[in-house]
């Protein structure tokens, strides 16, 4: 474990927890794409199939449990919570799952490190994580609503991406045989898409500021 990896995990964890806490506190999920949150829940569920079979460390197991618990809690809040679910704008969150999920299944079946069930599911989760932000991007472009997408959430998610890439570079130079093309390429694609997300976030933020100026 290097410092980039630990910091990356912590910012990733914080981004999910900040979102969950915010929804819990303000009892609203306006501006949040349920589809993106559901895709993230699927990402964790398919990636951590090894949680009970391969023990890596106590840290690893606990983090997996927290990611699974928090991502499914966010989905539960948006779908089931009697107050929160009213603030979810279903008509705006229209991105079709099939356009994201099917290509990821297809790609995971043909491009993977090993053709076993667990390995294909793990690869699928990497591809899915790379593009899971797309429904959120579409929603953001459509509504320009950044009320609930706080600066913290965007900052933490971006920091997680950047730190993971630094972690890979560090591991490449310090560990023998550390070459993993699939997570690297998927991770770079994800980071580039995130850059787009950040662009719209910044743009919306700027526009909102302008609207709030006194006449």
């Amino acid at each position: 474990m290097n410092i980039f990896r630990l910091a990356g995990d912590m910012t990733h964890l914080a981004s999910v927890l900040v979102l969950l806490l915010k929804i819990h506190t303000i009892k609203s999920c306006a501006g949040i794409s349920l589809k993106t949150q559901e895709l993230y829940a699927i990402v964790f569920a398919t990636r951590y199939l090894d949680i009970f079979t391969d023990f890596i460390s106590l840290y690893n197991t606990i983090m997996k449990l927290i990611f699974l618990g928090s991502s499914f809690s966010i989905v539960w809040y948006i779908r089931q919570h009697k107050i929160v679910r009213r603030s979810y704008d279903k008509d705006q969150d229209t991105f079709r799952y099939v356009f994201i999920v099917l290509p990821c299944i297809f790609l995971a079946l043909i491009i993977n490190e090993k053709f076993t069930f667990k390995e294909v599911m793990w690869t699928f989760s990497l591809y899915l994580e790379a593009v899971a932000i797309l429904p959120q991007l579409v929603l953001l472009q459509r509504t320009r609503n950044i009320d609930n997408l706080t600066g913290q959430y965007v900052f933490l998610l971006g920091a997680y991406r950047a730190l993971y890439i630094l972690n890979w570079i560090y591991r490449y130079f310090t560990e023998p045989h550390y070459i993993h093309w699939i997570p690297w390429i998927a991770g770079i694609v994800q980071t580039l898409l995130y850059g787009d997300f950040f662009y719209y976030y910044f743009h919306s933020w700027k526009n909102n500021k302008k609207l709030q100026l006194p006449a």
């Binding site: 990896r5 990733h12 090894d50 890596i56 460390s57 690893n60 793990w122 993971y164 045989h177 997570p183």
Partner: peptide
């Protein structure tokens, strides 16, 4: 030195 089995990243 070979890599351990399984994925150690989250």
């Amino acid at each position: 030195e070979l890599e351990p089995e399984g994925h150690d990243e989250l």
